[in-house]
Amino acid sequence: MPAPIPTGAVWRKSSFSGGNGGNGCVEVAALPGGDVAVRDTKDRARAPHRHSGEAWQAFLTGVRAGEFGA
């Protein structure tokens, strides 16, 4: 079982979320040890997803290269 997300995690809203209340809003938090947590801004009561720093960087590289569509 992965380690729990620290209660003091500092969350940042995705720059792709926009400010108009549209769908798909996410927040990310850097965690101790290099992991990254991702959560839905519209349902913060749900448990965030935890990813290794390497997996997160691979995801970002794919997004920037347009591999996931828009």
Rank of each mutant, 00 (worst) to 15 (best):
M1V: 12
P2E: 13
P2V: 09
P2L: 13
A3V: 00
P4M: 03
P4W: 01
I5E: 06
I5T: 13
P6E: 05
P6Q: 00
P6L: 02
T7I: 06
T7H: 13
T7C: 09
G8W: 15
G8S: 14
G8V: 10
A9Q: 05
V10W: 03
V10S: 12
W11E: 13
R12H: 14
K13M: 11
K13P: 08
K13L: 11
S14W: 03
S14H: 12
S14C: 08
S14Q: 12
S14R: 04
S14Y: 11
S14K: 11
S15Y: 00
S15R: 06
S15H: 05
F16V: 00
S17G: 11
G18T: 00
G19V: 12
G19I: 07
G19S: 15
N20V: 04
N20D: 14
G21M: 12
G21R: 05
G21C: 03
G22Q: 15
N23V: 09
N23H: 14
N23C: 12
N23I: 06
G24A: 02
C25T: 07
C25A: 12
C25V: 00
C25F: 10
C25D: 09
C25P: 08
V26L: 14
E27L: 01
E27Q: 14
V28T: 14
V28H: 03
A29T: 01
A29Q: 07
A29V: 02
L31H: 03
L31Q: 03
P32A: 10
P32N: 10
G33P: 01
G33M: 04
D35H: 12
V36M: 11
V36A: 01
V36I: 15
A37M: 00
A37W: 00
A37E: 02
R39K: 05
T41H: 09
K42E: 14
K42D: 14
K42A: 15
K42F: 09
K42M: 07
D43M: 06
R44S: 12
R44T: 13
R44M: 01
A45R: 10
A45H: 10
R46K: 08
R46P: 01
P48T: 07
P48I: 02
H49K: 09
H49G: 04
H49S: 07
H49E: 06
H49W: 07
R50A: 04
R50M: 00
R50S: 00
R50N: 07
H51F: 15
H51S: 04
S52H: 06
G53S: 11
G53N: 12
G53L: 10
G53C: 11
G53V: 08
E54R: 13
E54A: 14
E54S: 05
A55V: 11
A55M: 11
A55H: 08
A55K: 08
A55W: 08
W56D: 09
W56R: 08
W56Q: 07
Q57K: 02
A58N: 12
F59Q: 03
F59T: 04
F59Y: 15
L60T: 13
L60D: 07
L60R: 14
T61A: 15
T61M: 02
T61E: 06
G62F: 12
V63G: 04
R64T: 08
R64W: 01
A65W: 02
A65L: 08
A65H: 05
G66D: 02
F68P: 03
F68Q: 07
F68D: 02
F68K: 07
G69V: 10
G69R: 06
G69Q: 02
G69K: 11
A70K: 04
